[in-house]
Amino acid sequence: MRRSHHGRTSTDSGQRRRLLAVAAALAVFGGLIGVTQISNAETQQAAPTCKPTSPASPGGSPGTGGDAAAPGATATGTPPASGEECEEPEGGATATASAPASPGGNPPAGGGLNPLGKDCKGSDLPAHTGFQEGGRCVSTAFGELGAAAENPALLISEAPRKVRAGQPFRLVVSTRNLVRDRFLPAARGGYYLESSVLNEDGLVRGHFHTACRMLTSTSEAADPAPVPAFFVATEDGKGGAEPDSVIVEVPGLPAGLAQCSSWAGDGSHRIPMMVRANQIPALDSVRIYVEAAEEEPPANEPGNE
C-alpha cells in the first residue's frame, strides 16, 4: 500500500524540524565552549616555542657574533644581530625575541612581546619623588617576587553589618605570608620609593592598610579622589607564613553605606605582586550600613530613662 503524498510531506517536514533542532543545540553548545575557551585563554595559553637564530653578516650569511653593527642599522627599532625566533602556538605569527635562550631552554623574557615601556626613559612626565603626587613617572623597580605558595593573602574575617553613625566598631583582619615590619612613611617621601623586598623565608616585608569610604551609589564605581572617612596602616612587627589576626579599631563613621577595605602593602605601599595573573591579590572589602543616630528625647518626655 503506497503512502499518500501528504503523509510523505508530513514525515519529511518532521525530520527536517528534528535536524534543525539538533543543529541549533550543537551551535549553542559550541558557543558555550567557545566562551569558556576565550575566558581561560589568558591563563592557559601555551608559551611560544622559540629556536635560536644565527647573527646575519653583511653579506647575508651567518656571522661570527662580533660587536660590529650591520650596515644601515639605526639606533631605534633595529633587532639585534642574534636572538630567537618565536612561533605562537596554534599557527600564530612569528616574532624575533632579542634575549638569548636561558640555560633551561625557556622562552626569552617577554615571550616576543613588545612592551610600551619598562622604565621612564621615554616618558614626558617628571620623575616621582616619593611623595603622594600624581602626574609623575615611577622608575622604582618592582623588586623581589616570592613563590606562588608564599604570596600574601588577606581576609576581613569579622565585621559588623550595621552600626550607628559615630559608633566605634572593630574589624578583624587576617593576613598570611606577610611580615608586617616594613613601612616607609609616605608623608616623608616613602611612597613608591623602594623595591619589594623578601625576608630570608621568601615572604614579603610590608604592612597592610584599612580604610572606609562612604558610597553614593552601588551601581557605579566610586570616585577615587576624595579622602576616605577612615584610614590606618598596620605595622606591628608580626605576621608570617601562618595566618594570624589583627583587630582594627574604627572610631565611627557618618550615616550612609560604608565600603571598608583592607589591603596588603610592601615597604613602599604597593599591593604585593602575585606570581600568576589568576591569583587574587591580598585585599578584601565589606559593606557596612551606618544608620543615622537617633535623637535623644527631652528629659520631661515619658519613657526617658
Rank of each mutant, 00 (worst) to 15 (best):
A147G: 12
A25Y: 01
T11M: 10
L32F: 11
V204G: 06
E294K: 05
R176M: 11
Q167P: 00
E90K: 13
S54Y: 05
A27T: 14
I247A: 15
P55V: 04
G77V: 03
S217D: 14
P48H: 02
S57F: 05
K121P: 00
P298S: 13
A68W: 04
R164W: 08
F231P: 00
A241T: 11
Q15T: 10
K162Q: 15
E133Y: 01
S245C: 03
F208S: 05
A264V: 09
V163I: 14
L215G: 09
G83E: 02
G252T: 06
R270G: 08
D181I: 00
K118W: 00
L178Y: 05
S195Y: 00
K51N: 07
Q37A: 14
A222E: 10
N40C: 04
T78L: 04
V163H: 06
E249T: 12
E294V: 05
S4M: 03
M1F: 12
N199I: 06
Q45A: 15
C137P: 00
S217K: 08
S139C: 06
A292S: 10
F169Y: 06
A222Y: 12
V28T: 14
R170E: 15
A148V: 14
Q44C: 01
G83W: 00
L193W: 02
Q279V: 07
Q44P: 00
V163K: 04
P71E: 07
V248M: 03
S10P: 01
L26A: 15
A233R: 10
P226C: 01
Q132Y: 11
R287W: 09
Q259W: 01
G190D: 02
E200N: 13
G77A: 08
T234L: 14
E295G: 08
H5N: 11
S102W: 03
T216F: 06
S13Q: 13
S61K: 14
L155S: 12
S4E: 09
N278M: 02
D119T: 01
V197M: 05
R270Q: 14
Y289D: 13
D119M: 00
E294D: 10
R170M: 09
S123L: 02
D223L: 03
L171W: 02
G66W: 04
G105L: 02
E158W: 00
S261H: 01
E305I: 08
S196L: 03
D181H: 01
F231N: 10
W263A: 11
R8F: 08
A211Y: 05
T218R: 12
P126G: 10
G239W: 05
C260V: 02
